[in-house]
Amino acid sequence: METEGWPGNSEALRLLRDGAPNDPDGDVREAAVRAVAEGWPGDPGTLPLLRDRAANDSDEDMRKESVQAVAKGWPAGK
């Protein structure tokens, strides 16, 4: 998913954050999480979203994507 140009767009972030936990399609949730992680890594709500999806999503692939996004995006201890 291409996120260039979106980081300043709070409406895009809101839509993606809403889609990450709420869309019934696991692929959509996965794409939303990936876009948030890549486009807004410094946003204070990104890491909590990824942690929540890693622990609570019903889809195994979604949990894996969330864990990988945390591992790639944040040094240990943050």
Score class of each variant (00 low, 15 high):
residue 13 L to A: 10
residue 13 L to K: 15
residue 13 L to Q: 12
residue 14 R to S: 11
residue 14 R to H: 15
residue 15 L to F: 10
residue 15 L to K: 11
residue 16 L to R: 11
residue 17 R to Q: 15
residue 17 R to W: 05
residue 18 D to E: 15
residue 18 D to S: 13
residue 18 D to L: 14
residue 19 G to P: 00
residue 19 G to F: 13
residue 19 G to M: 13
residue 20 A to C: 06
residue 20 A to M: 10
residue 21 P to Q: 12
residue 22 N to C: 05
residue 22 N to T: 14
residue 22 N to M: 09
residue 22 N to A: 14
residue 23 D to P: 05
residue 23 D to C: 07
residue 25 D to C: 05
residue 26 G to S: 14
residue 27 D to I: 04
residue 28 V to M: 05
residue 28 V to L: 06
residue 29 R to V: 00
residue 29 R to P: 00
residue 30 E to Y: 04
residue 30 E to N: 12
residue 30 E to M: 10
residue 31 A to T: 05
residue 31 A to V: 04
residue 32 A to C: 15
residue 32 A to N: 09
residue 32 A to I: 01
residue 32 A to Y: 02
residue 33 V to E: 09
residue 33 V to G: 13
residue 33 V to L: 15
residue 33 V to A: 10
residue 33 V to T: 13
residue 34 R to K: 09
residue 34 R to Q: 12
residue 34 R to D: 07
residue 35 A to H: 07
residue 35 A to D: 05
residue 35 A to Y: 03
residue 35 A to N: 04
residue 36 V to T: 03
residue 36 V to R: 08
residue 36 V to M: 03
residue 37 A to H: 02
residue 37 A to Q: 03
residue 37 A to G: 01
residue 37 A to K: 01
residue 38 E to I: 07
residue 38 E to M: 10
residue 38 E to L: 15
residue 38 E to D: 12
residue 39 G to E: 03
residue 39 G to K: 07
residue 40 W to C: 15
residue 40 W to R: 15
residue 40 W to G: 14
residue 40 W to I: 13
residue 41 P to Y: 10
residue 41 P to H: 11
residue 41 P to G: 08
residue 41 P to A: 13
residue 42 G to F: 07
residue 42 G to R: 14
residue 43 D to T: 03
residue 43 D to F: 11
residue 43 D to Q: 12
residue 44 P to F: 14
residue 44 P to W: 05
residue 44 P to M: 04
residue 45 G to N: 11
residue 45 G to C: 04
residue 45 G to M: 07
residue 45 G to W: 11
residue 46 T to G: 11
residue 46 T to I: 11
residue 47 L to Y: 02
residue 47 L to I: 08
residue 48 P to F: 12
residue 48 P to N: 04
residue 48 P to W: 08
residue 48 P to S: 08
residue 49 L to N: 03
residue 49 L to I: 09
residue 49 L to G: 01
residue 50 L to W: 05
residue 50 L to N: 00
residue 51 R to D: 08
residue 51 R to M: 14
residue 51 R to H: 12
residue 51 R to Y: 05
residue 51 R to L: 15
residue 51 R to E: 14
residue 52 D to Q: 07
residue 52 D to I: 01
residue 52 D to M: 08
residue 53 R to W: 02
residue 53 R to I: 00
residue 53 R to N: 00
residue 53 R to A: 01
residue 53 R to V: 00
residue 54 A to E: 04
residue 55 A to M: 12
residue 55 A to Q: 15
residue 56 N to Y: 04
residue 56 N to K: 13
residue 56 N to M: 11
residue 57 D to K: 06
residue 57 D to Q: 03
residue 57 D to V: 02
residue 58 S to T: 14
residue 59 D to T: 11
residue 59 D to G: 03
residue 60 E to M: 08
residue 60 E to N: 09
residue 60 E to A: 14
residue 61 D to K: 13
residue 61 D to N: 10
residue 61 D to I: 02
residue 61 D to F: 03
residue 61 D to H: 10
residue 61 D to T: 10
residue 61 D to V: 06
residue 62 M to R: 12
residue 63 R to Y: 01
residue 63 R to C: 00
residue 64 K to E: 04
residue 64 K to T: 09
residue 64 K to A: 09
residue 64 K to C: 00
residue 64 K to L: 05
residue 65 E to C: 00
residue 66 S to T: 05
residue 66 S to Q: 06
residue 66 S to Y: 09
residue 66 S to I: 06
residue 66 S to G: 01
residue 67 V to N: 06
residue 68 Q to C: 02
residue 68 Q to Y: 02
residue 68 Q to D: 12
residue 68 Q to H: 03
residue 69 A to D: 04
residue 69 A to K: 02
residue 69 A to S: 13
residue 69 A to P: 01
